[in-house]
Design a protein around this nucleic acid. Sequence first.
DNA 1: ATAGGACCTAAAGTTGACTTTAGGTCAATA
DNA 2: TATTGACCTAAAGTCAACTTTAGGTCCTAT
Lengths: 137, 137
Amino acid sequence: MEYTISEVADKFNISIPTIRYYDKLGLLPLLKRNKGNVRTFSEADFDFLRMIEILKITGMELKDIRRYFYWCYLGNSTLKKRYDMFLERKKQAEEQINALKKSLQMIEYKCEYYKLANELGTTDHPSLEDICKPVEI
Amino acid sequence: MEYTISEVADKFNISIPTIRYYDKLGLLPLLKRNKGNVRTFSEADFDFLRMIEILKITGMELKDIRRYFYWCYLGNSTLKKRYDMFLERKKQAEEQINALKKSLQMIEYKCEYYKLANELGTTDHPSLEDICKPVEI
DNA sequence: ATAGGACCTAAAGTTGACTTTAGGTCAATA
DNA sequence: TATTGACCTAAAGTCAACTTTAGGTCCTAT
């Protein structure tokens, strides 16, 4: 089954120019064109797009994603590099999750705080005294 | 207790120019200077820097953080805006955590995959056939 | 007293990831 | 047949968040 660029943009919820930009950067190495020079996407390209999504979320830069794809292309000689890369991505993802969880604690506290303040119409009230500890902002 | 910009840079693990940049953007509204025009940081400024850290992690832009600080300055008339803002931040943080957890699954799978491939010296081996499902990259 | 180090400013430069623009091809439909 | 819509390219523009540069002040220690 083959897909047009607009179908892929819809499917992955990214813009058409972004897909072309990724292609230009070499992030879609298996992407084919038809006789009219029009891009025709298949499952193999979706695999690449999914991997781009996954790695980007962990904060990886496009040029490093490209390098990883190139390592895959080079074959077994780059297995160690790829292993190390994923260990590093795992570390980054875990660190980000931890940082977000920590931030979320304060944010949830602030939600409570402002819920109450809204009901009272003011932050200047005895019932907010003890709940307003972490930051006075 | 007062601190210099280099002490604060160390404490928060950000660069001195970044602190000056935040100050310029109005993200450190309580920051004082001594007679020599040198910034002197205190706990109140740390509260702002901590809040910047927390909100930035959830993907909030500096200009929106600034607007939040301004809302705080305006007082009780902005309580609803601030409440809604933190509800939105909570949503964003949770979504990011979920996206990262999902990515982490694939990354952990890839760690396993490449650990084995490294031991075997190749990705072209029967014991990797069944483990290599999600993406062929 | 002068040299060094820590601070200051304004302004320009950088980086990454896109987005926009301008101009062109091509196939199908009114 | 002509025009519309979906695609194409190359190149320029944008945006956020910094960083770098160039030049200056001020205090302290040799």
